[in-house]
């Protein structure tokens, strides 16, 4: 299990080539990469603030919960903070399991919890010079409910 919180970008191809390498008991690897979106064409940049210390603990506990629920051979979470431009990669998760259902479900679970339970906050800076903290969405909180046991 690997968790990295960093400002620098990452090479998702290289990360995946090195992920769960040399294992013959795996049947599935699933990965998700989150990218800074600018649908309206007005975004200059985004800055992601986080809570050093709590961030790593919160992600580790989300990963622990995923490995408790699904049989995962490996799990990777990378999340960036600091300034990011439209099109930049924000984060990625990867899961490896014997079967694809577990790998897909665990990756979705990780994404849902990272959105609402990992202490990151996004601030958008528009090309016009406006700034705005991104609000959490009701949908994000609702997404957690389907995982309640």
């Amino acid at each position: 299990m690997t968790v990295r919180v960093q400002t620098e970008s990452f090479d998702q191809g290289a990360e995946l080539s090195g992920f769960a390498q040399g294992r013959s008991d795996l049947g599935a690897v699933v990965s998700f990469t989150g990218i800074v979106r600018d649908e309206a064409g007005t975004l200059d940049r985004m800055e992601i603030e986080h809570y050093p210390g709590m961030t790593e603990k919160a992600i580790a506990s989300i990963v622990d919960e995923a490995t408790r629920r699904w049989s995962l051979a490996d799990c990777l979470v990378i999340h960036r903070h600091g300034p990011l431009r439209p099109g930049d990669q924000i984060m990625m998760v990867a899961t490896a399991s014997a079967h694809r259902v577990a790998a897909f479900e665990a990756a979705e679970f990780l994404m849902d919890y990272l959105k609402s339970r990992a202490p990151f906050w996004k601030k958008e800076f528009t090309k016009d010079g406006d700034t705005d903290w991104v609000d959490a969405k009701v949908n994000d909180e609702d997404a957690l409910k389907r995982w309640e046991e």
């Binding site: 959105k115 609402s116 906050w121 609000d135 959490a136």
Partner: peptide
């Protein structure tokens, strides 16, 4: 103790 708005990771 830390105070903050709802988190927006991912």
């Amino acid at each position: 103790v830390a105070f903050f708005p709802p988190m927006t990771g991912g």
